[in-house]
């Protein structure tokens, strides 16, 4: 997991607005990537890059709202802050329903915007970490054999070795061996850590 620096993606058809925002973010040390249209953004966007999206709601061709929908369609989960030249209630409600972080009316208070951007970046980081943990857990669990997986499920659901042995009709020793292997393969230091890994993987047998 490489800790790339967060980028704020700016999408606005107004050149001056874009330029001013770049300057502002640059002045507080946030790196930016700006695009004059939703299409340009989609062309260049790499979902692997962490950060957040500052999006003008009304643009020709593809509106901010449509871009939000398009990203959701591709299961891209980047936090979005909407900017609006003239917001109205039903529009902002719809934006929030689509998962927007915030909805600011131009001209906005830059302090508020910066605050929201920081929040959004934090949210994105948390999201990415959760995703990373999950993929990590999944890869670790994927190395287990089928029997080991079976034993692991029983361990994390709180069964003692003895119980597991009876249940699977195996010797106590064999269970001991499986347990050792599982801890080794998943690099779990403790039972608590193993449970965390199992939960992070989102293993559906746990639900």
């Amino acid at each position: 997991m490489t800790a790339t620096e967060a980028t704020v993606f700016l999408v606005d058809d107004d050149d001056a607005v874009r330029d001013a925002l770049e300057l502002l973010l640059d002045s507080v040390g946030i790196s930016t990537a700006s695009y004059p249209s939703a299409a340009a953004f989609l062309d260049h966007y790499d979902p692997g890059r962490p950060g957040c999206l500052v999006l003008d709601i009304r643009m020709p061709a593809m509106s901010g709202m449509e871009l939000q929908a398009a990203l959701a369609g591709e299961s891209v989960n980047i936090p979005i802050i909407f900017l609006s030249g003239h917001g109205n209630v039903p529009m902002s409600a719809k934006a929030f329903r689509g998962g927007a972080v915030d909805f600011l009316e131009k001209p906005f208070d830059e302090n508020v915007l910066l605050e929201r951007i920081h929040e959004a970046i934090r949210l994105d980081r948390a999201n990415r970490e959760a995703t990373a943990r999950r993929t990590d857990a999944c890869t670790r669990l994927a190395t287990l054999t089928r029997r080991e997986h079976e034993v692991m499920l029983l361990i994390v659901t709180g069964h003692a070795n003895k119980e597991i042995a009876t249940k699977l009709d195996l010797s106590h020793r064999t269970i001991e061996t499986h347990r050792g292997r599982i801890m080794e393969k998943t690099a779990a230091q403790s039972l608590t850590e193993l449970i965390e890994i199992a939960l992070a993987s989102g293993s559906h047998e746990l639900k």
């Binding site: 107004d14 001056a16 300057l23 502002l24 002045s27 001209p107």
Partner: peptide
């Protein structure tokens, strides 16, 4: 009119804030 004016106003405001932050440094 609001939409048209809000864009330049927004840019002006943001430019000013950026300038202020640059001055800070």
């Amino acid at each position: 009119l609001a939409h048209e004016l809000n864009q330049p106003l927004s840019a002006i405001s943001t430019y000013c804030q950026a300038g202020l932050r640059i001055i800070e440094t």
